[in-house]
Amino acid sequence: MAIEGVDIVKAAAFIGAGISMGLGAIGPGVGEGMVAAKACEAIGKNPKEAGLLTRTMLVGQAVSESTGIYSLVIALLLLFVV
């Protein structure tokens, strides 16, 4: 079986994409869970502000999500562009 250079480069790009998205998903997943846990605590202490707290939680999670989106972008670049 002859293995060509192009084939090895493509293989490395696929593995890289998998590792990028896989590891990149860990942090946002845990971080957003922490946000949600603390939002529940805050609503438990002060249920009147549920609307404001939901909004704050969602904005915080959206920021925490950004690193996950970077991973997705890098993975898609590795798969389709490089």
Binding site: G18, I19, A25, I26, V30, G33, A36, C40, G44
Partner: peptide, 26 residues
Amino acid sequence: AAGICMGFGGIGPGIGNGMAAEGAVR
């Protein structure tokens, strides 16, 4: 790579969902 991606990708959200549920239940 498909297996590695889904495997690692499932760790964080699983823990995070559990933390959210922990906060709500408490």
